[in-house]
């Protein structure tokens, strides 16, 4: 195979990986602060994807524009979920939390199945076949737009957590739960905000991803797992780590699809996860806690 093929595939993988990274960022933020493993992550993304599909097919709204309202809607969903359902489970054992979110995921997947049916749906925009050629390398326009949007959103989130007062309060909750209570932070509200922000990441990522892949109700669990893999690979609680993990997985999948068979591509992601768990359990950019 010519070298250009490899470069094209790698760049495509990096750009898709950035969108994966944004999705995983949501999971990382939620787990890093609330200490809840969101087993409904991929399912929430599927909801966002279907909203984007409907907005496009009914009102001809571009998913890239819809990103903001969809993220806002998912923020509301996430806030309500955390405030109403998950907050009472904060001190419950892990398997209890797991069942709670699995139940939520089950309801989400099957409601989508009832509403939209099992068939794949997709969005065909006017630019879906465009591409740029830079020095002999072909870059898919859609992937370039979504990748750029993912980077911008991640940077905005990073700034929010570093600079805004709310962001700093959320980090305080993550660092020391009791301490945060002592200094008078409304931890339950901040947890709900955090879950909302995580859900908003998923919402934005979902409306981008709808441009790249077809959506079916059954997509959810696979993407939940993918988000886990990315977060653990990159390093839990590290925001750049989530993006890096996303890019790594994106490239791994793209290369596996090219060199082996596309149907086996996620096997390589799992292999990567196992390797990282063994040699650097805290993830590539994570801080060692032990």
């Amino acid at each position: 195979m010519p070298l250009e093929t490899y470069i094209n595939v790698i760049i495509g993988g990096v750009l898709t990986g950035l969108v994966y990274g944004l999705m995983a960022l949501g999971l990382s933020i939620i787990f890093g602060v609330v200490r809840i493993v969101n087993f409904a992550h991929g399912e929430m993304m599927t909801i966002a994807m279907y909203v984007a599909v409907v907005a496009f097919s009914q009102f001809h709204l571009d998913p890239l524009l819809m990103m903001v309202p969809i993220a806002a809607a998912l923020f509301a969903l996430g806030y309500v979920m955390q405030a109403g359902l998950i907050n009472p489970f904060i001190n419950r054992p892990e398997h209890s939390q797991f069942i709670l979110l699995v139940a939520v995921a089950l309801i989400m997947v099957n409601l989508l199945l009832i509403i939209f049916g099992p068939d794949a749906q997709s969005v065909q925009t006017s630019y879906s076949l465009d591409s740029y050629e830079i020095a002999g390398v072909i870059i898919d326009a859609t992937k370039a737009y979504t990748g750029a949007a993912a980077v911008v959103l991640s940077a905005a989130l990073f700034a929010f957590f570093q600079m805004s007062r709310t962001g700093q309060s959320i980090r305080a909750c993550a660092d020391n739960y009791t301490g945060a209570l002592v200094v008078g932070l409304n931890v339950k509200h901040l947890y709900a905000l955090t879950f909302g922000i995580g859900a908003a990441c998923v919402g934005a990522a979902g409306s981008m991803l709808v441009l790249l892949i077809d959506v079916t109700p059954a997509l959810g669990p696979g993407y939940t797992l993918l988000a886990f893999i990315i977060v653990i690979t990159g390093g839990l609680g590290s925001m750049p780590g989530a993006l890096l993990g996303g890019v790594l997985i994106g490239v791994t999948e793209a290369m596996a699809g090219l060199l082996f068979t596309p149907s086996a591509k996620s096997m390589f992601s799992f292999a990567l996860l196992v390797i990282v768990l063994l040699f650097r359990p805290q993830g590539i950019l994570g801080k060692a806690t032990r």
Binding site: F31, E94, F98, I232, F270, L273, V274
Partner: peptide
């Protein structure tokens, strides 16, 4: 390697998923 808690749970999922895709081939 001291993989425990949630990480252990996800490792078990990863092994099962690996087998699922592996046996597919």
């Amino acid at each position: 390697f001291g993989v425990g808690g949630v990480y252990f749970a996800i490792l078990t999922i990863a092994f099962a998923e690996f087998a699922r895709i592996g046996f597919d081939h």
